[in-house]
Structure formats: C-alpha cells, structure tokens
C-alpha cells in the first residue's frame, strides 16, 4: 500500500492530488507504527502528517500554483543515482539483525536499563514520556528550541514584508529581512 501510494505521488502531476496522497501516506505509515508497537509515534504521525502537514501544503498551493510542469530533463540520470544508492543501502542491510530479534545491538545497551529503572526512579507508566522528559530532557529541550527557531524563521519570512514593500518601493528593507530569514534557516540545521 505504502509503495503504491509513493509511486502514485511520483507519477501524478496534479499537486492537489499529491497533497492528498501525502496525507494518505502519513496515515498508512501511522498504521504501520501501531503494528510495530509505537503508539506514541503513530499518534504524532497521524496528527502531524495527516493533519497539519496537509493543511500547510494546501495553503502553499493556494499561494502558488496547482499543476506541475512536465519534466524537461531525461529521468535516466536520477534513476541511475537512485538505483545505485538503493543497491548500496540494501547491501548495507544484509548485516542487520532480523526484524524483531530480541538480541539485536539496539536492544542490549540502554533500552533494558530504561525499562528496568523507570518504575523505580520515575514511577510513570508510559516509559516513552519518562525517557522523553526526564532521562533525555536535554534532547527534548533542544528539539523544542528547534521548533521555536523554525517558527521564528517562518514568521520572519512571511509576515510584514508585503505591507512594507507597498509603503515604499525600497528594496533594501526587503533584502534585510531576507538575510535574517536565511540566518534563521541556518540555525535550524
């Protein structure tokens, strides 16, 4: 299902349909997350991917255009790049542990420790919340700061510029604000 949706996104040129299909893609991946026991992640993905992200893409389409132009390049070079990268990735997975094996390296270091210590030290049923807010509090603070920075970046890029430009046709003002926006973007990554 996921692959079919993905291929449809590649093929379609109507951007409205692409936006809707990306919502479908998110919802399907949320189902997959539930099947893999990650209920918190599925919850987030369903709310973010199928909700907000679709709204934002549609908002962008309303401000830009609806139909994609046909590609002018031959798709051969990108296809070649993609196949080579994919082959390398699949070659890399040959060393991976089997899906669901309990003795994989990812399972043997900190994870059992977190599961063992959470009832004693934090006494919160949802281990994901315990790790998110307590054991890895620094991490989460950084993520919050990133969300904050991205929000500021969007505000700088989108707000106020139009009004100022109508007031006076001076280009300096505009360029200034653009430079600030670019700085913010640099901060995000």
């Amino acid at each position: 299902m996921l692959v079919v949706t993905a291929l449809a996104i590649v093929r379609l040129r109507n951007l409205f349909a692409v936006a809707m299909l990306s919502g479908v893609f998110s919802l399907l991946s949320a189902l997959l997350f539930v099947a893999m026991d990650a209920v918190d992640v599925a919850f987030t993905e369903a709310a973010v991917g199928a909700g907000i992200s679709t709204v934002l893409v549609l908002g962008t389409l309303a401000l830009t255009s609806r139909v994609e132009k046909p590609a002018s390049h031959s798709p051969l070079l990108p296809l070649f790049v993609v196949f080579v990268t994919g082959a390398v990735l699949i070659y890399g997975t040959l060393d991976m542990p089997n899906f669901g094996s309990a003795d994989a390296p990812a399972m043997t270091h900190v994870a059992p420790d977190y599961l063992k210590r959470t009832p004693e030290e934090i006494d919160v049923p949802n281990v994901v919340t315990a790790i998110l807010a307590s054991y890895r509090g620094y991490d989460t603070m950084g993520e919050t700061a990133v969300v904050f920075t991205a929000g500021i970046g969007v505000l700088l890029l989108m707000s106020g510029l139009r009004r100022r430009r109508e007031d006076d046709d001076d280009d300096d003002d505009d360029a200034d604000a653009d430079a600030q926006g670019a700085e913010e973007e640099g901060g995000v990554y």
Partner: peptide, 27 residues
C-alpha cells in the same frame, strides 16, 4: 519527577501550539 515531567511537557505543548498556529496565521 512527576512534577518536573508535567512542567516540562506543558512547556513543550505551549511552544508547539504557538508555532503551529503562528505558521498557519502566516500562511
């Protein structure tokens, strides 16, 4: 730990709400 987690999650919630609504307003 309970109090701390509540406070911190509240902070996260406030920021995420603010950013998402601000982005929507901007668009």
């Amino acid at each position: 730990q309970h109090y701390g987690i509540l406070a911190v999650e509240f902070g996260v919630g406030v920021t995420v709400t603010g950013v998402m609504v601000a982005i929507y307003y901007a668009f």
